[in-house]
Amino acid sequence: MKYLYFLLILFAVGCSSKTKELTAQEIIDKSIISSGVDKVANSEITFKFRDIQYKAVRENGNFLLIRSFDSIKDILSNEGFKRLENAEPVKVSDSMISKYRNSINSVHYFSVLPFGLNDKAVHKKLLPSSTIKDREYYKVEITFSKDGGGEDFEDVFIYWIAKSDFLVDYLAYSYHTNGGGKRFRVLKEQCYKEGIRFVDYHNYKPLNKDITLTGLDKVFENNELEKVSEIVLEDIQVDIFD
């Protein structure tokens, strides 16, 4: 009986020690909280990127995304796009509206990741875990529905989210504009403003364009990427709405 009791204890301990595997949705939810970007939904954020001033106002589902340079102010909101020059409206062709809108949205999108990854058009898929520089990561693939996914809905993203703190240290994406390609971003620096994490990245491309998106982490470890730029946000200011 003592032997049977001992086996039952071992079985109970073994069952309780098994940790429940997280889903892609749960990982993204934890990453959003850990990064503090849940606060972005009701905030005003300003920053400078490559000598252009950006401003984002988000409140209760309404948004106003702005970029300003020289005498130009481009404004993207729930109502659409408009351009002002010297505070006066400027007529813009449909093709250029699409280009400007995508450019503005892209900068604001990347500035507050992983905010936005719970939008209705977003689909999440958990890939096999990965180890980069001796650190373990969840690997989550993001794709988009055509309906609500924007003009670049065919782009694919992968996020490497650290198992220890649920923060995004690496991300990769494939894009189709301007001939298409792949990019792999590596954490350069990070800072927190009003509890929101902002990240600067080293931006790389693969030397071999046939490398799969999911394999870019291994290629990075093998030093087979070419650095093409740095993604640096300057003069970040944040105001959280009550």
Results as ranks from 00 to 15, higher is better:
1 M>K: 12
4 L>F: 10
5 Y>K: 11
5 Y>I: 14
10 L>K: 01
12 A>M: 06
13 V>I: 12
13 V>M: 09
16 S>H: 05
17 S>D: 09
20 K>T: 12
20 K>V: 12
22 L>N: 05
23 T>Q: 08
26 E>S: 05
27 I>M: 07
31 S>W: 01
32 I>W: 03
32 I>C: 03
33 I>T: 11
33 I>V: 14
35 S>H: 11
35 S>R: 04
38 D>M: 02
38 D>S: 02
39 K>N: 09
42 N>D: 09
45 I>Q: 02
45 I>M: 03
46 T>P: 03
48 K>E: 14
53 Q>C: 01
57 V>P: 02
57 V>H: 00
59 E>H: 14
60 N>M: 10
62 N>E: 09
66 I>C: 02
70 D>A: 12
70 D>G: 03
70 D>S: 13
74 D>P: 03
75 I>H: 06
77 S>R: 08
80 G>E: 06
80 G>T: 01
81 F>V: 00
82 K>R: 14
82 K>N: 08
87 A>Y: 12
88 E>H: 08
89 P>I: 05
91 K>V: 15
91 K>Q: 14
93 S>M: 09
94 D>W: 06
96 M>H: 12
97 I>V: 14
98 S>I: 10
99 K>L: 15
104 I>D: 04
106 S>L: 10
107 V>D: 07
111 S>M: 01
114 P>A: 01
115 F>P: 06
118 N>V: 06
118 N>G: 09
119 D>I: 01
120 K>V: 14
120 K>M: 11
120 K>G: 06
121 A>D: 12
121 A>Q: 09
121 A>Y: 12
123 H>S: 15
124 K>N: 08
126 L>G: 08
126 L>A: 14
126 L>P: 03
130 S>I: 14
131 T>S: 13
132 I>S: 04
133 K>N: 15
133 K>H: 13
133 K>A: 15
137 Y>K: 00
139 K>Q: 11
141 E>N: 07
141 E>F: 04
143 T>S: 10
144 F>I: 05
145 S>N: 15
148 G>P: 00
152 D>Q: 12
153 F>R: 00
156 V>S: 03
156 V>R: 13
156 V>W: 01
156 V>K: 13
156 V>L: 03
157 F>R: 03
158 I>G: 01
160 W>M: 08
165 D>S: 08
167 L>V: 09
171 L>Y: 10
173 Y>C: 03
174 S>A: 09
175 Y>R: 09
177 T>L: 13
177 T>V: 15
178 N>V: 11
183 R>A: 02
183 R>E: 08
186 V>L: 05
187 L>I: 09
193 K>H: 13
193 K>T: 04
198 F>T: 01
199 V>Y: 08
201 Y>C: 05
201 Y>F: 13
203 N>K: 10
205 K>C: 04
206 P>L: 07
207 L>C: 08
209 K>Y: 05
210 D>W: 00
210 D>K: 10
214 T>L: 12
214 T>Y: 10
215 G>P: 06
215 G>L: 07
217 D>L: 07
218 K>V: 11
219 V>K: 14
220 F>Q: 05
220 F>S: 04
221 E>F: 04
223 N>P: 05
223 N>I: 07
224 E>K: 15
225 L>A: 02
226 E>G: 11
228 V>Q: 09
229 S>K: 07
230 E>H: 06
231 I>H: 13
232 V>P: 08
235 D>A: 11
236 I>R: 04
238 V>G: 04
240 I>V: 11
241 F>N: 02
241 F>H: 10
241 F>L: 10
